[in-house]
Simulated assay, not measured.
Amino acid sequence: IGKMFSIIIPVYNVEQYLDKCLKSISKQTFLDFECIIVDDGSPDNSNAIIDKYVNKDQRFKVIHQKNMGLSAARNTGLDAAKGDYIAFVDSDDYIANDYLEKFVLKIASSNADIIICGIIEVFKNYENSRVFANATTEVIKQNIFADPWPSFVWNKCYKKELFDNVRFPVGKAFEDLLTIPEVCLNANKIVCIPDKLYYYNRQNVSSITAKMSVEKIYNLFEGHLKSRQLAILHNINCSKLLDEKMVKEVIKCLLINCYDNKLSEIHEQIMLDYLKERLDKSEIDGIRERFWVKMLLAKRKKLCAWYAHIRGK
């Protein structure tokens, strides 16, 4: 039997935060939902916490799988979901009691394909809130593609059909960035609500964004590159804003890789080709950025030897 909402929660090594997450879902004032918990081979005590909710509330279901990563766990949840709308909650985060209720009210008044809510970032000693002003669907898409609005999967609810031909890329960091702009393309109407309903835990030091490696910076660039290509294809005006981010990402990535040497030559060449195209089209703003780009294109090996020497000291 279908439900209005399917809430998908991937779980891996989060016993410290999981009970608070699941409790916030069990307390929802809107009751017509299923909660699909995907245990991604978690070796800690998470399963005991999951069982507590599955055994006492039939809306909670668990799927166990071997550890395949966050994207694979979300994809498993999508494959099992029976709701008309999909919402994602990360297992170290939690939601307001009226999270689903506020989404339902907005769906009823707007029939939107995607609804975006405000967030509260929870740090150790303080909180930081952020809301997203309602605008036309075109402007919202520009903001998500250009990334001044984060392309988080989790502060949104989606008509399930938007994911019919879209899944998260397995084995990549910043999988939201590689997925959500594409999902937004499928949406005819996107709206924002001012309510701050999602609590984003910034204390989890094991989260993907906590420690940046050269591979993660490349995945970030890769996500932005995909967004840029889709934006051009679908006439979404955001290339200039994206290029400002991407040029900085590529310079940083190439320089760090001089020392770490963890990226393949193919990946390096994709980034160098991107820089050359931007330089040829005079699309790089800033004297500093142009200097580094010219150096990386003309004297990369010497520059890398120097940078590796400096980093090695």
Rank of each mutant, 00 (worst) to 15 (best):
I1K: 03
E15G: 03
Y17W: 08
Y17G: 02
Y17A: 00
D19F: 05
K27P: 00
T29V: 06
L31C: 00
L31D: 05
D32S: 02
C35S: 04
I37E: 00
P43N: 11
S46T: 05
A48Y: 09
A48S: 09
I50F: 04
K52N: 01
Y53H: 07
K56T: 10
D57L: 06
Q58F: 07
Q58S: 13
Q58W: 00
Q65H: 03
M68Q: 08
A73D: 02
G77W: 03
G83P: 10
Y85M: 15
A87M: 10
F88R: 05
V89Y: 12
D93A: 06
D98F: 13
Y99M: 08
V104M: 14
L105K: 15
L105E: 15
S109A: 14
I114T: 10
I114M: 08
I115N: 10
I116F: 10
C117L: 07
I120E: 08
N125K: 05
E127A: 00
F132C: 07
T136L: 11
T137F: 12
T137V: 13
A146K: 05
P148L: 04
S151R: 05
W154N: 13
C157N: 09
Y158V: 06
F163K: 11
N165P: 01
F168Y: 14
P169R: 05
V170N: 03
K172D: 07
K172Y: 14
D176Q: 01
E182K: 02
L185A: 04
N188R: 11
V191M: 09
P194C: 05
P194H: 07
K196G: 02
K196P: 01
Y198D: 06
S213R: 05
V214A: 08
I217Y: 06
N219P: 03
E222K: 06
G223V: 10
S227A: 15
Q229N: 15
I232F: 11
N235L: 08
L242Q: 12
E244A: 11
M246I: 09
M246W: 04
K248V: 09
E249Y: 14
V250E: 04
L254T: 02
I256D: 06
D260Y: 14
S264T: 15
E265D: 06
E265S: 08
I266T: 08
D273R: 12
R278M: 13
S282D: 13
S282H: 12
E283C: 04
E289C: 11
R290Y: 01
W292A: 04
V293K: 04
V293I: 07
M295K: 12
A298I: 01
L303Y: 06
Y307P: 00
A308L: 02
R311H: 04
R311G: 00
R311T: 01
